[in-house]
Every structure is written in C-alpha cells, then in structure tokens.
Amino acid sequence: MVVPQTASGAPIDADLVHSIYAWEVIAYALPVPWAGADWFGMIDTPGGASGAAQHPQPMFLGQRRGQRRQAIMRNRTQNVSPMDAASSVPAFAMFTSLAAEAVFSPWPWPNGDAETQKRTDLPTLRGLLADHWPKFPSSNCKRAFSYAIPNFSVETFKNKAIRTPVYDVSIYGNRTLVDVTGGQVQDSRTLAQFLGTVANASTANWGYDKRSVVVVKHGIFSLPSLQCTGCLSRRVALALHELLHVYWGVSDDAIFGTDVLASSYGLQRVHSGTQDITWWISTDCRYTPQTVPSSGAVE
C-alpha cells in the first residue's frame, strides 16, 4: 500500500484521516441545526450566481453521507499522487476548521455574517415551519412536491429549511447579498435594495447545496390567512413557498410551468403570479383560490 503524501513528500498520518472521519460522524450526529449540513458538498461545489433557474438533484442525507464516507475511505486506501494529497489536505483542514467552528458557534455558517452570528433570534424557514413539520409528510403538498421535484425527499427538504435564514429587511436592510450568502453571490446590493419597495419577499442564491437566503418585508408573516377547512396559515404557506424556490432552484414561472401541478394539483395563474402560489399552498396544494382574504393589519 502506498502511503498518501503531501506535496512536500511527508506522509499523511492515517490517524488524521480517521479523526477527520470521526469529526464527520460527530458533525452529522449532533442534534443541532448544522448537523448533517453539507459542508462536505460545499468544499467540493463551487459557489454560483443567484437567480439562474437550476435543477438540483438533492440526494437523501444517507446517500450524501455514504458518498462522503466512500470518498474519505478512498483517500485512505488508494494510491494518492502528491498533487491529490496536496488538494485534500487543505480540504481536510478546512473541514476540521468548519466542524470546530460549528461546534462552538451558535450559527451554522462560519465566515458568513459575524453580526448575524451573534443574533440568535434570526429565524430560519424551519423555525417558521416548526409546527407544520409533523403534518407535512402526510400532506397533499408533500405529494405534489414529490411528483414535481426530481429526487424530492422530506428529509432533504427539511434539511434545506434548517439552513435557510430569513432576513427581516427592517432589521437587516443594510446588509449586502454578498455578506449574507458568505460570498457565494457577488452582488453588492443591500437586502433593502434587493427586496425593493413593493415586494413582500424575495429569495437569492437558490439551490439545494447553496447558502440561500430569504428576505422579507417586516410583518409579512402575520398577514391574514385563508379561512377554510384544512388550510394552512399564511406564515406556513409563505415559508413553504420560499422553501420551494431555494430547494428546487426554480422561479415562480417554472413552478407554474410544471404540468403535473396544474393538471393534478390545481395550481392556476389567477392573479399576478407569486401570490397564487402562496394561496395554492395555503389550500394544501389542492386548488388556487379565486379570491383572497383581505382583513387584518399591515404594518
């Protein structure tokens, strides 16, 4: 067996590889939001620009874990050229750093947003959906998403919600997109400029493996809900809608263009786009309401 070497020719300690593997197992097993987060995928995956519709192929968490384990085992046992070793050592070092930071940081995104890291009240989509998760696996929306989205799974959907923060523009309006996406979106616009003056919510950096963000107008989650039997609250519907974008990586237009949602699940374009998707989700993805509620207060 050839011992893996670094670029300088020094052998890589097999125990180091074992300890890195142990770190990975610990990181995945931790009952915290970043447990199971895809740092491993992020190390391998270059960042991308926001906005372009993509079709990610989310894998089951088990699949991802398995692949990473196999990759690490390959590094242990296969012949490794100095060049390979040189590229894997920084990756391992980066992983170790991320894992350590994840353990000691209240925020799952190292190097992201120092000010935000200190704020424990920054909600995620998962937080907004907390009371809905137990019902989601048996919901009609889950069935609709399963038909529409390639490789959809509740586990990966939930995992994306855990990792997607929601920025209230009245608090974080001066932060920039480049800042909140950890540099994955090279866009110097502030969140206030990104949202604009008339939109209620906007999403950036879509895709399962990306550091997506949701930017919302203040008070948007307390807007009136659809009043019908089995209907979801506005908060849940809006959060699921935004999660759909960041998970699936497609625009409203592409969601409307998914035939199965129109033909089997009642998604229709009645009003001006995005609202219809939220109201459709409100009905547990059964039909698109022709009229929408208007009582309640807007701040």
Binding site: G51, A52, A53, G196, V198, A199, N200, A201, S202, T203, W206, L223, H241, E242, H245, V250, S251, D252, D253, A254, H271, S272, G273, T274, Q275, S294, V298
Partner: peptide, 25 residues
C-alpha cells in the same frame, strides 16, 4: 416588471399594481 419572490432571467410578468397586498392590478 413584477419580479415576484424569485426574480430570474426568465421573469416576464408586467403589471400596474396597487399596494400593499395587491389591492388591484
């Protein structure tokens, strides 16, 4: 342009809209 909540290069909805909450469009 009505960007909705997921602006993309294919976004192509155009409107005159009265806010908040799409009172009329």
């Amino acid at each position: 342009i009505d960007e909705g909540d997921a602006p993309g290069p294919a976004t192509d909805d155009w409107s005159l809209t009265f806010h908040p909450e799409y009172r009329a469009a």
